[in-house]
Simulated assay, not measured.
Amino acid sequence: MIGIAGCGRMGAPMLAALRRAGFDAKGFDIRPPCEFGDLESHVTDNVAEFSQNLGTLITVVRDISQTEDVLFGAQNFSTAKHVTRIIVCSTLSPSYVLGLRDQIPAHISLIDAPMSGAQIAAEEARLSFMLGGDNAQL
């Protein structure tokens, strides 16, 4: 399963686009699912439920502090049993993202993918991503 952590202005439309394209995708947010309208049944605030079949984690959170919570802190998704890929879509300092490689288990691919585009671009599934990481993993 593909999981989107952070279903705000950008994450929720990304989740909707993945689902429209036929991907098995679920969202996680600290807000309750009832706040997500048509996506309510596809968003959870339950860490264990979200982690259960999580293979690819896409983080779409605001900053380093929230990224830390998602990966190592309150949610700790970097230790989910089936995770093989983490894609960081937040715009974070390159040195911070490089440092993540030392903190994330070696069997997990780490891709830096900050995005460009406004909320309307996310809603229309036309965001641009700047990709960084190991060539084979990209």
Rank of each mutant, 00 (worst) to 15 (best):
E49P: 01
T59Q: 00
E35T: 08
R20A: 11
F72N: 13
I111H: 12
I111Y: 14
Q137C: 13
A74L: 05
F36M: 00
I86N: 10
D112N: 09
A74T: 07
K26L: 13
I2R: 04
N46E: 10
I108Y: 07
V88T: 04
I120V: 09
T59R: 00
E35M: 05
T91C: 08
N53P: 00
G117R: 15
A16M: 06
A122N: 12
G8D: 05
M10G: 05
E123H: 09
A80E: 09
L127R: 01
G37Y: 01
C34K: 03
T79S: 03
E49G: 00
I108S: 02
G99L: 01
D24R: 14
G22Q: 11
S90Q: 03
D69E: 15
M14K: 13
V97D: 02
Q137R: 10
S93E: 09
A17T: 10
G6E: 07
I108H: 00
Q75G: 02
R126W: 10
R9W: 09
F72D: 12
G22M: 11
D112F: 09
L100A: 02
A16S: 13
S116N: 01
G37L: 01
I111Q: 11
N53H: 05
M130I: 03
I120W: 03
S51A: 12
C34P: 01
V83K: 00
S95T: 14
I64Y: 12
Q119H: 00
E49W: 11
R101A: 15
F23Q: 06
S90Y: 07
M1G: 06
S93P: 06
S78L: 11
V83Y: 04
F23H: 13
T91W: 05
Q52H: 15
D112C: 08
Y96E: 03
I30E: 00
E40P: 02
A21L: 10
E49H: 07
G133K: 03
K81S: 10
P105I: 13
L138G: 06
S51N: 09
G27N: 10
E40R: 09
